[in-house]
Simulated scan of single mutants.
Amino acid sequence: MAGTTVKAPRLLSLDIFRGITIAAMILVNNPGNDHVYAPLEHSVWNGCTPTDLIFPSFLFMVGVAIVYAMQNKRATISHSKLILNAFRRMVMLILIAWGIQMFYHPDLAHLRFPGVLQRIAVVYFIATVIYVKTNQKTQDWLFGIFLVGYYIIMTFIPVPDGHAANLDPETNMGAWLDRLVFGTNHLWRSSKTWDPEGLLGTLPAIGTAIFGIRVGTWIKRTDRDETTKTVWLFVYGIVAVLLGMLIDLFFPINKALWTSSFVLYAGGLSTLGLTLCYWVVDVNKHNKLLWPFLVFGTNSIAAYILIDIWPGLINLIKVHHDGKVVKAMSYYNQVVFAPNFSPINASMFFALSLVIITWLIMYPLYRNKILIRV
């Protein structure tokens, strides 16, 4: 990783939308206890909560960012160089993800190979190759092939271990493939028999990035005025949401499986969210109240890594409290929040405090225009 000077953002609304998503991620990933408001939890299986929309928003924004980073470069720089740089970045992100895991669980025999950052890395690389080497028509075809192909694989092809095609957590085709390739020791610790960021689900996840590429290409067009682009983006978003809800009738919206209906539903909502930011920030220049999100949005990788690391470092400190030795973060929660709020509000305010603390740590980077790149 290297520190470089931040250049003027080419799409300010993308940085702000990314910052909002990072803040939401910190909020939902760090509850103070087991009492959590329903919108701040993932759906148990089928269905979709606001929390379920955070991860696909990142992949959607990966697609948008690829357009802004590479539209001009692919005409002037060797494609092999662009792809090699994307491959290097993918490897670095995967190694960072594994390094974070080893910080908390130093056990190579049970290292989880898939994961959120790993999927972002792989999808980024494949989406980059697709964008650099294909035209828009081919990208549209690939989007349809990934979604329809995934639906066919998951609902019509029998699982080789003897189960019929199904969408259950442990017996579907994706779970079988993950056990075959990774083994049970290298899957999601809460399950060990399947992984929500497994191999097969990467196919529709690439579709989410292609969705973002499509939206980014439209925003970047110079032959349409901003109002026209905004109106059509809202139409695209609404149509995608409705299509996702329609497909949900026979291929349920499911974040863990990353179903085709989920791609359309979440992609449509991401489009609406980004379009709203685009209309407010880039078109009407009303960004004064939203600038705090730039602290996260312009340095998203640093923010992602920081929130995974700093609470763990603080927890290396042990504190005596009520006759027990507790970790520092637990002490902070028990002293500041637990006595003063109901359990569910204590949980929420604890999480909000981590958002604020992480923001304060990140602010000097933003203030000094330091961008951490991988």
Rank of each mutant, 00 (worst) to 15 (best):
M1E: 10
V6Q: 14
L12Y: 08
D15I: 08
I16K: 11
F17P: 10
G19C: 12
G19P: 07
T21G: 09
A23M: 13
A24C: 14
I26N: 00
N30C: 01
P31Q: 11
L53F: 03
I54V: 13
P56A: 07
F60R: 05
F60H: 11
V62A: 12
V62N: 02
G63S: 05
V64L: 06
A65V: 10
I66T: 14
I66S: 10
Y68D: 11
M70W: 02
K73Y: 04
R74T: 05
S78I: 03
K81T: 14
L84E: 14
L84N: 12
F87K: 11
R88A: 14
V91N: 05
L93T: 04
I96W: 08
A97F: 04
G99I: 05
Q101G: 12
L108S: 02
H110E: 07
V122E: 07
V123H: 01
V123K: 08
I126K: 00
A127Y: 04
K133F: 08
N135C: 00
D140P: 00
L142W: 01
L142C: 03
L142A: 05
F146D: 02
L147I: 13
I152P: 03
P158A: 13
P158K: 12
D161Y: 03
G162P: 09
A164F: 08
D168S: 14
N172P: 07
L177T: 11
V181E: 08
V181D: 02
N185V: 11
W188Y: 15
R189G: 08
K192C: 06
K192V: 06
K192D: 08
T193M: 13
T193V: 13
W194M: 08
D195T: 10
D195W: 00
E197V: 09
L200K: 10
G201Y: 09
L203Y: 09
G207I: 05
A209R: 01
V215W: 00
G216S: 07
G216D: 06
T222Y: 00
R224L: 10
D225G: 12
E226L: 11
T227Y: 12
Y236S: 13
V239C: 07
L242W: 02
L243R: 06
M245H: 09
I247N: 09
F250Q: 08
F251P: 13
W258F: 12
T259S: 15
G268E: 01
L269D: 05
S270F: 02
G273I: 08
L274C: 09
T275P: 06
W279D: 09
V281C: 12
H286Q: 15
L289M: 13
L290Q: 04
L290G: 04
L290K: 06
F293H: 03
F296P: 03
G297D: 09
N299K: 06
A302G: 02
Y304S: 00
Y304Q: 00
L306G: 00
L306W: 02
L306Q: 01
I307T: 00
I309M: 01
P311T: 00
L313A: 10
K318I: 07
H321V: 03
D322E: 15
V325C: 01
K327G: 10
Y331G: 01
Y332P: 01
Q334R: 04
F337R: 07
N340H: 15
S342F: 08
A346W: 00
I356L: 15
I357G: 02
L365A: 05
L365P: 01
